[in-house]
Write a protein that binds this DNA or RNA. Structure first.
Length: 578
RNA sequence: GCGCCCGUAGCUCAGUUGGAUAGAGCACGGACCUUCUAAGUCCGGGGUCGCAGGUUCGAAUCCUGCCGGGCGCGCCA
């Protein structure tokens, strides 16, 4: 149960009653009415802005309207007190008993606590990772993978029907370069000596050596001395399949699973790119024209050239965008339009793409394309992930793609573990740069958020193991024994989990889950520390089984909420710390 | 030159889609402590939310213009 939503409904019901009784004009728009936790907890548990938002339309002073509301709210059995404050806030304090009952909700639901139906089963397509199949995944890919995966999970928890997709960029010049690189490794496997200089402009990484060996095993000398055009197809096919194998293994290591892997090449082969361009042409959204040169940049090799363009500027983009390259091949953009049309045709009217920040320049044109292709019905959201900067004990880790010395995702997971990688990737909002320090990420200290949250879970589990309470018994705990301000604060925080899930899903901000769990852990550790000073405040109180049982219920609820949040993040909750 | 993102305490960052007196951790200053699971704990100082206008009951949040940083800018994906 989302407590805040519950009271928003109650406020709306009161407004409707008042309207029916003639005390308010009929048909007031309740759209901006909100019930939120007040920033300052001394103001109460809930704050409602209805009186201020509706004052003008209702033709009444905010405080008069607020008075009307608190008269009704005061009759609510869950309400301890209702008061007008400031410019017309309605502040509610709920009875402790009401809050304690939320522990029963949590214990009954367990890890499913926080599940919501706010998504109403709406189908959402989340496309993420979508790395070029030219090598193993590196650290930069990991952030998009985790952000996409956890966004998908939190939206599922909020009641959306989520499809997780990976778009394979297996067409274009880069996979041709891959094919030629694999060919050299093939020659090498047949005994030829290939100088390092031969890899100029190609992919020099060792990871293609097994592909060369495999090709040699299958084909023997068949392709030696062949022309580029004849060998390109088979080389490419093998190399791409092998690279997708590497990428899928990396995703598996990271615990990321996509339901659909969509191939760009398959779209080309099925004529889907021509089809999408024709569809736009039929709407008079395609023409042949000449773009202005980019301003401010010395246009050395720039020459005016007529090309096939999409009228992106009609849909909010700055300029129209090319669909064909000078060699007559379709641009990446044209194929990506075909892909997004494919998603639309599969019934997705809500789509999210997770991209690296270096693709920011493509956001407007892709949104323009979706607007054009869907007639404005479908929504495409694009979340950009900023760079990850690697550090080791505060020193930057140098990465160079050219020398092949970049840190792979597999290396990173080997070093710190999957759970740490996933958690740390969510310790910043995705559009801010993230510093990832190897050493700090595995440190057992308060400064390490992964440890801090896991430690709260482990401490909670330790208490529960010692007491041996099972869930049935905890559900019948005498919760009235929970009375301290700190215990009540933890309960309120835990009861905020459903609201957090909904907010993170709607705002598409998975990092909020990590920050929330950090707050819960902090509140719990604070409670624990009080027990260090005062044995009467420990969770296990010798000689008072009822109190121990009640506190056990609180601990179990904390454990459930943390486990629920970690499940969304794809991080394993630990029973104990080594 | 244009577009996008960012600018919040000395540092690293949150800020619940516009709420009340802007928060946390680190660092700093002071006091305490030796453990039900092992990160020590508690208290304190610290701010023109880049700058200037605007919108309204109310702005860190929305709009406009500047300043500063990052990324991108036809024939890469």
């Amino acid at each position: 149960m989302n407590v805040f939503k519950l009271f928003k409904e109650r406020v709306r019901a009161l407004l409707d009653q008042a309207a029916a009784a003639g005390r308010l004009p009929a048909g007031l728009d309740h759209g901006r009415v909100e019930v939120e936790p007040p920033r300052d907890p001394t103001h109460g548990d809930l704050a409602c802005n209805a009186a201020m938002v509706l004052a003008k339309a209702a033709g009444q002073a905010p405080r008069a309207l607020a008075q009307l509301l608190i008269e009704g709210l005061a009759l609510d059995p869950a309400v301890e007190s209702a008061a007008i404050a400031g410019p017309g806030f309605v502040n509610l304090r709920l009875k402790d008993e009401f809050w304690r009952q939320r522990l029963v909700d949590i214990l009954a639901a367990g890890i499913a606590y926080g599940d919501s139906d706010i998504g109403a089963g709406q189908r959402v397509n989340v496309e993420y990772v979508s790395a070029n199949p030219t090598g193993p995944m590196h650290v930069g890919h990991a952030r998009g993978a985790v952000v996409g995966d956890v966004l998908a999970a939190v939206m599922e928890k909020a009641g959306f029907a989520v499809a997780r997709e990976f778009y394979i960029n297996d067409a274009g010049a880069q996979v041709d370069t891959l094919a030629e690189s694999a060919y050299l490794r093939y020659l090498e496997a047949r005994g030829e000596t290939i100088p390092a200089s031969a890899f100029e402009g190609l992919y020099p990484g060792d990871y293609l050596k097994p592909v060369g060996a495999e090709l040699a095993k299958i084909y023997g000398d068949e392709w030696r001395g062949s022309g580029r055009e004849t060998r390109l197809g088979p080389m490419r096919e093998h190399a791409v399949r092998a690279m997708m194998g590497l990428i899928k293994a990396d995703l598996e290591r990271l615990g990321v699973r996509h339901a659909v892997f969509a191939s760009e090449r398959a779209l080309h082969q099925a004529g889907r790119v021509e089809a999408v361009v024709k569809r736009l042409a039929d709407q008079d959204l395609v023409y042949t024209g000449v773009l202005d040169p980019p301003k401010g940049k010395p246009p050395e090799d720039w020459e005016p050239r007529p090309q096939l363009l999409f009228r992106a500027s009609k849909f909010g983009d700055d300029i129209d965008r090319p669909l064909k390259k000078s060699d007559g091949a379709w641009t990446y953009f044209a194929a990506d339009m075909a892909y997004h049309l494919d998603k639309l045709e599969r019934g997705f009217e809500r789509m999210v793409d997770i991209w690296g920040a270096d693709h920011a320049g493509y956001v407007k044109r892709m949104k323009a394309a979706v607007a054009a292709l869907s007639g404005g019905r479908a929504a495409l959201e694009i979340r950009l992930c900023q760079m990850v900067n690697l550090f080791d004990r505060g020193q930057p880790v140098k990465m160079s793609k050219r020398s092949g010395s970049f840190v792979t995702l597999a290396d990173l997971i080997e070093e710190v573990g999957r759970d740490v990688v996933r958690f740390i990737m969510l310790t910043r909002k995705s559009d801010a740069q993230l510093d990832f320090d190897f050493a700090k990420a595995v440190e057992q200290s308060k400064d390490n958020p992964v440890f801090y949250v896991q430690y709260a879970h482990a401490r909670g589990r330790s208490v529960l193991r010692q007491t041996g309470f099972d869930r049935e018994r905890l559900l019948r705990a005498p919760l009235g024994r929970l009375t301290s301000a700190e215990e009540m604060a933890l309960i309120r925080l835990l009861a905020g989990w459903p609201r957090l899930v909904e907010g993170a899903a709607l705002a598409q901000e998975p990092h909020r889950v990590a920050f929330y769990l950090h707050d819960v852990a902090g509140q719990f550790h604070g409670l624990w520390n009080r027990g260090n000073d005062d044995p009467a405040q420990r969770f296990i109180v010798a000689g008072d089984d009822e109190l121990t049982l009640a506190r056990g219920a609180l601990v179990q609820a904390m454990v459930d909420v943390v486990a629920s949040g970690l499940a969304v993040m794809g991080v394993t909750p630990v029973e104990e710390l080594r």
